[in-house]
Write a protein that binds this DNA or RNA. Structure first.
Length: 422
RNA sequence: GGAGAGGUGUCCGAGCGGUUUAAGGAGCUGGUCUUGAAAACCAGUGAUGCGAGAGCACCGUGAGUUCGAAUCUCACCCUCUCCGCCA
């Protein structure tokens, strides 16, 4: 959510930012509602002030034996008027809030222009695309032949876009999760969280999944709960409606969770393999920081996520996301893309974003610089550290041998109990 | 799922329709005393949001009754105790 004061004071600046996103802007409509709201607010507060004053006099008048009937009659009228205006105010608040929750974040000035992911800018690269002296297989074929990935069974027991992992496949998934968690906790200073996989509506609003993208989420019937699309949601909302102190910051959390996405609108894309599933595993990094440090923290966040891919020896590149590909909540975003031989290109395996105060404002996450200072919003950041299923896919493909077996990256040996899947 | 109790400021806790600008205590801040500290005593002190300000709002959340609600009514949420069920 943006600051309504910013919209009031610099509407043109906000409009220009939204225009960069090619986002239809409802700023004028919003400003009109805001003006109306403030007028009504002023009026109703005047009336309430009078009501309070008279109410305080009533016991005194009664004590002195005065006649309260005419006062009550007058106050009754006043009360009705206040109720009407309060109702009016509620409706305006709701309309304003509804608009505010649907306005995307303002992109940082350094975010490159562009419309699609083709316009993203490569920042750096690690290693080179893997070369094979044989025809490499896709991970879905490797996985099936090795008996470690089973899409058919998943379809039988659940449906499309689910996978059953078996044997060393299940072990590999678990190894990757543990490797990621251990690195981020032991080497990068993140505190581990294991969150609930369901959250209520307000949490989803807090991080920005709702109200705009409800069709992307799985809703639990007869409850107000949603399956989390990412651990970002429960972990960010850990501090909702809370005022932290400066000594608490920065807060850095790492969380493994299963993630659930309806993938509305992606029918026909990435239908084979582990790339796009309704349920997948992810290790997520979340930070709460003071505003003046958030962009440094974004850089280190990306480095922390990169470290796990480096550790696994997987070729990747980092791209800076252009304004058209930025997403609703981010002010700036880097993607890390891993080399996927079956795609013949780099595939997103991590997104690292600085939301500035956009989520903090929605979720009410503040901090005080000192006891005497007024509370202000923290900046929140998060990034995948990294997607587990896609990592397994990348390992299978990049570490495959001519005979269809797969080498285990050295970093995972302690977790795997074998150096090859065959 | 059933029965009961309860959600009040940083914390404990009073409050049962109108001098409540939320009693009292703890804590915190300052002071007196002291070589220093503790204790004692004195004084000060709720947080937050909106607003340029006056002011308005805020006693779990939302709605209602009333001239007036922390206080009464209804719904919901959460916590605790006991029972049932369960990994």
């Amino acid at each position: 959510m943006l600051d309504i004061k910013l919209i009031r004071q610099e509407p043109e600046k906000v409009k220009a930012a939204l225009a960069r996103r090619k986002e239809e802007d409802k700023i004028d409509e919003l400003l009109e509602l805001d003006k109306k709201r403030r007028d009504v607010l002023y009026e109703v507060e005047q009336l309430k002030s009078k009501q309070n004053t008279v109410s305080k006099q009533i016991p005194q008048i009664k004590k002195e034996g005065g006649d309260t009937a005419p006062i009550f009659a007058e106050m009754k009228e006043l009360s009705e008027k206040i109720k009407g205006l309060d109702q009016n105010l509620r409706e305006l608040d709701e309309a304003i809030n509804s608009l505010m929750l649907r306005i995307p974040n303002i992109p940082n000035e350094t975010v490159p222009d562009g419309d699609t992911d083709e316009d993203n800018v490569e920042v750096r690269k690690f290693s080179e695309p893997t070369k094979f002296d044989f025809e490499p297989k896709a991970h879905w074929d490797l996985g099936e032949e090795l008996g470690i990935l089973d899409a058919a069974s998943a379809a039988k027991i659940t449906g499309a876009r689910f996978t059953v992992y078996k044997g060393l496949g299940a072990r590999l998934e678990r190894a990757v999760i543990n490797y990621f968690l251990n690195m981020h906790t032991d080497k990068h200073g993140y505190t581990e969280i294991f969150p609930p996989y369901m959250v209520h509506r307000n949490s989803m609003v807090g991080t920005g999944q709702l109200p705009k993208f409800e069709e992307d989420a799985f809703k639990v019937m007869d409850t107000d709960y949603f399956l989390i699309p990412t651990a970002e949601v429960p972990v960010t909302n850990l501090y909702r409606e809370q005022i932290l102190s400066a000594e608490d910051l920065p807060i850095r959390h790492v969380a493994y969770s299963a993630c659930f996405r309806a993938e509305a609108g992606s029918a026909g894309r990435d239908t084979r393999g582990l790339i796009r599933q309704h349920q997948f595993n992810k290790v997520e990094l979340v930070k709460f920081v003071e505003p003046e440090h958030s962009y440094e923290e974004l850089e280190t966040l990306v480095l922390d996520a990169e470290a796990v891919l480096k550790g696994l020896g997987l070729p990747y590149r980092v791209v800076k996301i252009c304004v058209g590909d930025l997403g609703f909540t981010a002010a700036m975003k880097y993607d890390i893309e891993v080399w996927m031989p079956s795609y013949g290109r780099y595939v997103e395996i991590s997104s690292c974003s600085n939301f500035e105060d956009f989520q903090a404002r929605r979720a009410g996450i503040k901090y005080k610089k000192s006891q005497a200072d007024k509370p202000q919003f923290v900046h929140t950041l998060n990034g995948s550290g990294v997607a587990v299923g896609r990592t397994v896919a990348a390992i299978l493909e990049n570490y495959q041998n001519a005979d269809g077996s797969v080498r285990i990256p050295e970093a995972l040996l302690p977790y795997m109990g074998t150096d090859v899947i065959r």
